[in-house]
Nucleic acid binder design. Structure first.
Length: 654
RNA sequence: GGCGGAGUGGCUCAGAUGGCUAGAGCAUUCGGUUCAUACCCGGAGGGUCAUCGGUUCGAAUCCGAUCUCCGCUACCA
């Protein structure tokens, strides 16, 4: 019998700091899918782990005064602890510092180099001498080092590059012919329009500026930069071997059915990673899902906002399954979800305590009360039962359909529809009335059987999402049949068995009390503000009318007359001109986006108004030390701001 | 600047290929019930489907313009 396989992965967590609930969500989401596939009968392999190399980690360790290895050991341990207490059922936890991983990455790198897909070139970046660090243009803010705030210098270092352009066409074809490859689909457009259509630049895959990484075997001083190291975990975790026969896991499970990743790293997984695989002649994963983010109130979780929430704290106050339920349920397929304590409490009360918990509780209580806990045969059916039984039988298929689309929240909704229907069934049949007449005993037994069976089907399905609770429920109703086949028929509850003790699954939470328990200060803060505040903030942001300023503000801007003494096109940008402008005794280089309106030749000799105290900035690799004033209309016509008559360059404009 | 997405009751969202009185959950309110965790069930209120114009017998759904928000991206300075 060849069982169908299913290989699913999370992104590996970066071990610079402890993961928060948003990071944890990814593991829980992946776990729910993995568990569901197992339930359906797939042979599932669920891989997760940690990404442990890089400069950031090296620096962090330095600050803490420990070795990078000690630092990543600590964080990786925390990650694993969190994944464990959240009940994620991973089959393997890979670390990029694992010896086998490192060796395989080196082999991959070597092979790509040998076959010409990786070549040596030089990498231009900005260097901060005190920090001994390189930064890319986009990492910089205001031309200073993002770590220490000191100025940076442009430098270049030797580096290896992966030839992306070679595979660009093939990747484009793949994406076009496999519409399911990138999910959600809107992300596909972003990748295609922003990167593939405009052509890919080769990717820098090594560094010499730090050494906490996998060394390049054939060139001392170079370490393999994040991409080839981290992304490879998906195949090294299965014992892939680039030089020969791969291990049995690889042969069995690859290609991956889905990589579950955050929407922020889709680019790496849908462009760089497939190209690496193409270069290695390995099949591509079937699907990459960029899941949305969990927001705290209206904001992204971040240390600087001081709103970071950790799974551990939530679990302490609400329990694992309430937290799992919440993050899985509040996250629509493609839209960011919101976490607040109020919402978490509300969902726990209404969905878990009221609808689910109370249903199980009242049902088990009735079986205990009316039949001493013995499950009766469903011998006296009535037509009214069909609505319940039909829905119960349809539910597994419905849930499976949603799960196949990765719409986890909707899959759970389908289960709750059945739970609600079950509650309604109790009202329709009024077991407590049946119990009063001896003649109705058989009917009563049937009603309770139907309820137990509906609960059993629900609980089996719930095992993918809230496994601990599901198993408690199955214990309480003493279900012995718990597999996929058993929920395709309405006969899985065993007549004659005894139900267990009715215990409360989720206690109702008093909101105020709980908020105070969590944090007296936070209770106030979180109570009713998040929304309003944010809306106000947003409205204030774009001032409709430009604010009036005083002369003291205006005088901050220094403008002078400058004469263009030379001008040429930007070597690497077709919208920009690079002018040498004489301002008094000084000559400055200024880059401006006016190539569409002026030829370099006609610029020379013009006397323009120049802002001279702007921070210098690098535009597409060329330094610009000021700004030329110009007028432009809505149609895009542009005219330079000049002075009326002849006046010496360097004259101040005011 | 470019590309894309979105704007539906207090909140979170559903609403292929245009068609009965625009739906669900939560919240609110009224009623019922007592097996159960002050729970469950039923009813009700509440929406100019962002705005303006157009196509059509008929549009939340198609077209155009506008406004707002969001995402990605850039050779804005």
């Amino acid at each position: 019998m060849s069982q169908k396989t299913y290989y699913i992965t999370t992104a590996i967590a970066y071990t610079s700091k402890t993961p928060h609930i948003g990071n944890t969500y990814e593991a829980v989401l992946t776990d729910a899918i993995a568990r569901f596939k197992r339930l359906e009968g797939y042979d599932v392999f669920f891989l997760t782990g940690t990404d442990e190399h890089g400069q950031k980690i090296q620096l962090q360790a330095q600050e803490e005064g420990i070795t990078p290895q000690a630092h990543v050991d600590k964080i990786a341990g925390e990650v694993r602890d969190i994944w464990d207490f959240m009940n994620t059922s991973y089959d393997k936890f890979i670390r990029t510092t694992d010896e086998e991983h490192e060796k395989t990455v080196q082999k991959i790198f070597k092979r790509l180099y040998d076959q010409g897909d990786i070549y040596k070139g030089s990498y231009e970046g900005w260097y901060c001498t005190p920090c001994e660090s390189f930064f890319t243009e986009s990492q910089l803010e205001e031309n200073v080092c993002p770590d220490c705030g000191r100025p940076v210098q442009k430098t270049s270092e030797e580096a290896y590059f992966l030839k992306l352009s070679k595979y660009e066409k093939r990747l484009m074809d793949h994406i076009e012919t496999h519409p399911e490859f990138i999910q959600p689909e809107s992300r596909k457009n972003e990748m295609v329009n922003n990167f593939l259509k405009s052509g890919l630049q080769d990717l820098c895959v090594s560094r010499t500026s730090f050494d906490w990484g996998v060394p390049v075997t054939f060139d001392e001083g170079h370490v393999i930069y994040v991409w080839i190291d981290a992304l490879s975990n998906y195949i090294t975790g299965l014992n892939y071997n680039p030089e020969g026969e791969s291990g049995p896991l690889f042969n069995k499970y690859w290609p991956a059915d889905v990589h579950i990743i955050g929407k922020d790293i889709l680019r790496f997984h849908t462009i760089y990673w497939p190209i690496m695989l193409m270069a290695l002649n390995v099949p591509l994963p079937k699907q990459v899902f960029g899941h949305p983010w969990l927001m705290v109130g209206q904001d992204k979780m971040s240390k600087s906002l001081g709103n970071v929430v950790y799974a551990e704290d939530l679990v302490k106050h609400f329990g694992v399954d309430a937290v799992r339920y919440f993050v899985l349920h509040e996250m629509p397929f493609a839209q960011d979800g919101t976490l607040t304590y109020e919402l978490l409490i509300a969902r726990t009360n209404s969905d878990l305590a009221n609808i689910l918990g109370n249903l199980v509780n009242r049902t088990v209580a009735m079986v205990t009360k009316y039949f001493d806990g013995v499950i009766q045969p469903p011998t006296k059916a009535e037509t009214i039962d069909h609505e319940l039984t039909d829905l119960a039988l349809k539910t597994p298929g419905k849930v499976a359909e949603k799960m196949d689309q990765l719409k986890v929240a909707e899959a759970m909704d389908a289960i709750w529809t059945l739970l609600r229907r079950s509650n309604k069934y109790i009202d329709e049949t009024c077991p407590w009335i049946l119990a009063k007449e001896e003649a109705q005993k058989e009917r009563l037994g049937t009603v309770l059987y139907n309820l137990l069976e509906s609960i059993r089907i629900s609980a089996v399905l719930l095992s993918a999402f809230i496994p601990e609770t599901a198993s408690k429920i199955l214990d309480q109703i003493n279900a012995t049949k718990k597999d996929w086949a058993s929920i395709q028929t309405f006969t899985g509850t065993v007549v004659g068995d005894h139900v267990g003790v009715a215990e409360v699954l989720f206690a109702r939470i008093d909101e105020k009390q709980k908020l105070i328990e969590i944090n007296p200060a936070m209770a106030e803060e979180l109570e009713d503000q998040p929304k309003k505040q944010k809306q106000q903030k947003k409205k204030e942001k774009p001032p409709v009318i430009v604010e009036e300023i005083g002369i003291e503000d205006f005088s901050k801007v220094v403008m002078k007359v400058g004469e263009v003494i030379a001008c040429e096109k930007h070597p690497d940008a077709n919208k920009l001109l690079v002018s040498q402008i004489k301002i008094g005794e000084e000559v400055r280089q200024i880059v401006s986006g006016i190539a569409h309106a002026y030829e370099p030749a006609e610029m020379v000799g013009k006397k323009l108004i120049v802002v001279t105290n702007l921070k210098p900035v690098n535009l597409r690799g060329v330094l610009s030390e000021g700004m030329i004033l110009a007028a432009s209309d809505q149609a895009g016509h542009l005219k330079l701001g000049t002075v009326d008559g002849d006046i010496a360059s360097g004259s101040e404009v005011r």
